[in-house]
Amino acid sequence: MSVDTADRRLGARAPGRSQGHRQRRHGVTHGRTGYLFVAPFMLVFVAMLVLPLAYAAYLSLFQERLIGGTVFAGIGNYTRALTDPRLLHGVGRVALFFLIQVPIMLVIALLAALAIDSGLLRVAKLFRLGIFLPYAVPSVVAALMWGYLYGRDFGPFAQLADKVGAAAPKFLTPDWMLGSLANVVTWEFTGYNMIILYAALRAVPHDLYEAAAVDGAGAIRTAWSIKIPALRPALLICVIFSVIGSFQLFNEPQLMQRLAPSVIDSGYTPNLYAYTLAFTGQEVNYAAAVSFLLGAVIVIASYAVLFITTRRSRA
């Protein structure tokens, strides 16, 4: 326990505790100063995000051909994208990825956070840091490591399977690939989500636990009826970030492509498709349109998640 006291002390100072005093924002008199405070961020934001985005929108209205130069295409690129089977397959694939990988990852992260918070673990700090560690590993390195471990003939898993006489796991085949990628992403980001959830747990008012203990609730009961409901906002954050991460899936499939190029084709994920279009097919304009549509899908999916969860909490 003593290991955790430092955190607890900081947790006590953390603002989350004081849910009650959401003060009125400060007076209109200082309103103009507010602009000065947000101006630096907004300036960089406009220059680095809004401007390129507007430029991409502009680009998406044209078509540049290798022969014949650039012509105005109107919404031609968009109509092409909406009927492009490779793009649609890619979107379907990342949607599937989201539906399978994210629940698994978040359940592991949640269980780990609850376990570490429960006080029932020996060396809780070791677990907390150990599980979080992969987050500090660049995806370039993560893909390299898992790619080796997945090796079909001489990877450690294949060698172990060989020793016990079992068939080697086929990590890199078409049927397994999405699962193998999901594993890499889970490995990278479970710790990150766990830390968000754990931090939120630390901020749950302590007296609630004591009340529960007085009522005779065990650790599991306390987790189920007090801790998990308290985690709802934090979980929502995790889900929204996962929507964005899943639909933008790029680094891992791109880096794993070398190991199974015929499984991970250029349309494997929508982002990979946009990248290939721009850099391999030299269809920059069409790539811009594809990226825009992908952004729209992400916005819709995020709102869908928000809508479903808020409706359930009202019910």
Binding site: L66, P174, A260, P261, S262, D265, S266, G281, Q282
Partner: peptide, 21 residues
């Protein structure tokens, strides 16, 4: 061809894929 990148990418996804599968 005067557009080799695309040709190679398409090869991977057709002929290369048929080898793999």
């Amino acid at each position: 061809p005067p557009f080799l990148d695309q040709t190679v990418s398409d090869w991977n996804e057709t002929v290369g894929k048929s080898f793999a599968n």
